[in-house]
Simulated assay, not measured.
Amino acid sequence: MTIHAQALLFDNDGTLVSSLASVDRCWTRWATEYGITAEEFARIELHGRPAAEIAADLLPPEIVPQAVARIEDLEVEDVPNGGVHLLPGTRGFLDSLPGDRWAVVTSATRRLAEARLDAVGILPKTLVAADDITRGKPDPEPYLLAARALGVDPAHCVVFEDAPAGLASGRAAGMTTVALTTTHQAHELRADLVIENLSALSALVTEQGVEISLRD
């Protein structure tokens, strides 16, 4: 199978890097600080959604801004504690791409996204973060904004995601979707292609764009 693209758009957490240990530590502490019960917390989908939306689901509106600032501080401060690392295949796959042909599209704030990316030595030329949008994944806005920033028709973009919300965002934007089974099982992920991680893929840059293929 070969996928032809003009631009490649990557979610960050769970796609390029793993931050599960950090997320678990920080959100558990945050929930305790704000008096959220384990039962309430267990019902919330954390992965792939902006912190502001998660906080709004759990807390009174008047304290949401303070709570969002608090979880951002906790997660940024936790980055040096070793809770973030590159997922298999990330470095080699990104290194094979021209810098103006790919972007990172994350539900994290720009401050947090840049802290995590810097920690693993990834420096995207284009980054779309929670600060840049009005509606988060599964709305198509984040990926449409990235396509516009790269000057590419959404129909010629490929989205790489690990979470159902992100894949739904990519589909709604009219893009080809590739799912990674790093945080969810394959049957939970609706995509044009499902892989374990980026080590399953190779990229060939041509005059027409990028050809993405499964490794033998």
Score class of each variant (00 low, 15 high):
L127E: 02
V105R: 08
I133N: 07
G89I: 12
I3N: 10
T37F: 12
L46S: 02
A55Y: 00
Q208Y: 03
G209C: 12
V158P: 11
A173M: 05
R110I: 07
G166D: 03
A168Y: 03
W27E: 02
T15A: 03
P138I: 12
V210S: 05
V159A: 11
A38V: 15
S107Q: 10
T181S: 08
Y34G: 05
F160E: 07
G92N: 14
E196Q: 13
A67K: 10
E53T: 14
D73S: 14
A168V: 04
A52G: 10
C157W: 06
G209A: 10
D100A: 12
H187N: 11
A191K: 08
A21N: 02
S22M: 13
A200S: 12
P124L: 04
V79I: 12
V128F: 07
A168G: 07
A103I: 02
A103Y: 00
L97N: 08
T181W: 07
L117D: 11
W102Q: 05
A55T: 10
L123Y: 08
R70E: 12
K125R: 14
D139E: 14
L16S: 00
R171N: 02
A203Q: 02
D57F: 00
E77C: 13
G35H: 12
A173G: 09
D118S: 15
T109W: 02
A173H: 12
A165D: 04
N197C: 02
E72V: 15
L204T: 15
R111W: 10
R135W: 07
T2K: 12
T181N: 09
C157S: 03
F160S: 12
D100M: 09
E39R: 12
A38R: 15
V205W: 05
V76D: 04
D73N: 09
L198K: 07
S96G: 08
E211D: 15
L8M: 14
G35P: 13
D132A: 04
E188P: 00
D95C: 13
L97C: 11
E141F: 00
G92Q: 14
G151Y: 05
T134H: 08
Y143T: 09
A172M: 03
A42I: 09
G82E: 07
R49Y: 14
A52H: 05
I71C: 08
A113V: 11
Y143R: 10
E188C: 07
P164K: 03
P61C: 08
D139H: 15
Q208R: 15
S107L: 06
H156N: 15
I44S: 02
L214P: 13
V210L: 05
A51Q: 11
A173Q: 06
F93C: 09
L144G: 01
V84F: 05
V178T: 13
T176K: 13
G136E: 08
T32D: 03
R101N: 01
A113N: 09
E207M: 10
